[in-house]
């Protein structure tokens, strides 16, 4: 059994107005040293598998098929033994 920690991000070429708005809010709160803010998604799930590479393949397939849209998003993940 593994736990997968997945991060889905907007691709760098895509404007992130939400991130921009949050960054501006931070700056208005005097966090002027914080910049380049972008918003993504955090997903965690359990993976029923005994072999690490099998778990990895499953998570990768799930990301490619549903969890991320390759037109606008990139994803990365970590697997932890649970």
């Amino acid at each position: 059994m593994y736990k997968a920690i997945i991060t889905v991000r907007l691709r760098p070429s895509i404007l992130d107005p939400e991130g921009k708005a949050i960054e501006q809010a931070l700056q208005s709160l005097d966090f002027s040293a914080l910049s380049g803010l972008r918003v993504g998604k955090y997903i965690e799930m359990n993976v029923e598998a005994t072999e690490r590479d099998v778990a990895e393949q499953m998570v990768d397939a799930a990301c490619g098929k549903l969890l991320a849209n390759p037109v606008m998003e990139d994803y990365s993940y970590e697997l932890h033994e649970a």
């Binding site: 895509i14 404007l15 107005p17 939400e18 708005a21 849209n69 037109v71 606008m72």
Partner: peptide, 11 residues
């Protein structure tokens, strides 16, 4: 169809 529909620019 190609492409994607993102969050409105105005949010």
């Amino acid at each position: 169809l190609p492409g994607a529909l993102l969050r409105n620019h105005s949010l």
